[in-house]
């Protein structure tokens, strides 16, 4: 069986020129790097604007407030990856990665709530210290993956509409709040100073849930089985 694991790369006639090329690139880039006099960075500006941002951690402030638009797009990228994955194929779980046993199931039952707790803690304290929506979301995703590989029977029956709503929860909340700012502050994504930290936390929680769901669904590798059967039913009636 292990023979399938190996894919020896064939001898490639391009090997030498390509290696020469990339080594040249490496030398060139390193040389430039040495010659650059590094500019100061934006630490001071961020620090001065930090009190108004609603977050104590500068990274979070930059991520959600100063460059919130980037983060919004990034959430969209994540959404896009699940959209693409679903459009490409149907899910097929790599079953029996771990042999499901009663001990495992009880372990999982214990672990899952703990992980969810950790995830939300990470999200919550992300405004002050390291952590935030992405870190929390990935813990949630890990929980999801654990559920998936433990073959939880109920998991298969989640209707895809719930999943889909879960995926868009983050981006939609983000967009809605950003639009809400148009009414209050006349500017897209200019959070009102009074409730800025609450808004940020709200966005982070919504995003974390979406991120977790999306990543877990990406692990499954495609759209749920019933998704295609709906389409097929439609097709047959048309």
């Amino acid at each position: 069986m292990s023979s399938h694991n190996t894919y020896p790369e064939r001898k490639n006639s391009l090997a030498l020129p390509v290696i020469l090329l990339t080594s040249g690139l490496f030398l060139l880039l390193s040389y430039t790097l040495l010659s650059i006099e590094q500019a100061g960075g934006l630490a001071a500006q961020v620090q001065s604007a930090l009190p108004k941002s609603g977050a104590e951690s500068p990274v979070t402030a930059v991520l959600l407030n100063f460059r919130g638009y980037d983060t919004l797009l990034e959430v969209m990228v994540l959404f896009l990856s699940i959209l693409g994955a679903w459009s490409i194929g149907r899910a097929s779980l790599p079953q029996a990665l771990i042999k499901t046993s009663t001990i495992q199931i009880s372990c999982v039952r214990l672990l899952i709530p703990l992980m969810i707790l950790i995830a939300f803690y990470l999200v919550w304290q992300g405004t002050r210290f390291a952590g935030g929506a992405f870190q929390g979301g990935s813990i949630l995703a890990a929980a999801g993956v654990l559920l998936l590989v433990s073959d939880f029977p109920k998991l298969i029956q989640i209707h895809s509409i719930h999943l889909r709503l879960g995926f868009i929860l983050g981006p939609v909340t983000f967009i809605l709040i950003a639009f809400y700012c148009i009414f209050t502050n006349k500017t897209f994504m200019a959070y009102p100073a009074a409730i800025v930290s609450q808004l940020l936390l709200f966005i982070e929680i919504a995003c974390a849930i979406s991120i977790g769901l999306t990543l877990a669904a990406l692990f499954a590798g495609g759209r749920p089985a019933q998704e295609s059967s709906i389409a097929q039913r439609k097709g047959s009636t048309l």
Binding site: G41, P58, V59, A61, L63, R67, D70, E74, L78
Partner: peptide, 15 residues
């Protein structure tokens, strides 16, 4: 003096 902007960029990049 840590610059948070590249860190945020890398976070975005990782995702």
């Amino acid at each position: 003096l840590l610059d948070p902007v590249p860190q945020a960029m890398v976070l975005t990049g990782i995702v």
